[in-house]
Amino acid sequence: MQKLKANLIEHINSGFRDAVAKDYPNENRLDFYVNKQCIPSILTYAKDRLGYIHLSHIAIVDWLEEGEFELIYIIWSPEEKIKMFVRTRVERENPVMPNIDMIWRQANTYEREFREMYGIQFQGLEAPEEFILEDWQGPPPMRRDFDTEEYANETFFHRPGREDAGDVREEIIKRSREEIPDFAKKYSR
């Protein structure tokens, strides 16, 4: 395993000098930190030359405090049985990423979702504008600075609901003639 990993690091570093490797010795996992512009070329290289033919996942994390999104392309080699994490960061203000759906077709779905939910633009992405949201006017909702509750309170009016709606706990107490337990009192209205 360690030999395979060392070999892989050597291969990647020979083509991509800026790629910084991080090894997890007890796991079949190897991380590479790269510049976002390298993403299509490093993934193509890994797929065509190194046998990393399966795109397992594209994960995204919003590091709000650092002003960046992190995208993690997780690829898998059925022969070497190693998970390669290709990680990159992109600024939160007007984020633009290269598109990789010509390498793996299913990347198109991830990119559509990230465009809608995080506001990341993928260069040359061909897909219908809307994915999950319909007629959405607000900011990208999966960003960490988007407060769902606040947005709902500002955008939608309050619907009072049933007139006889009371606190269900009080109703239970009334029926059972028991005291409300101390730990539940703080949740009582």
Binding site: S56, H57, A59, I60, V61, D62, R105, Q106, N108, T109
Partner: peptide, 19 residues
């Protein structure tokens, strides 16, 4: 910080199915 799930349907039901 983030939990991001990818299921089989995520890759099967959109690009592959359309194809």
């Amino acid at each position: 910080r983030r939990v991001h799930l990818r299921g089989a349907a995520y890759v099967h039901a959109i690009t592959l199915l359309e194809d």
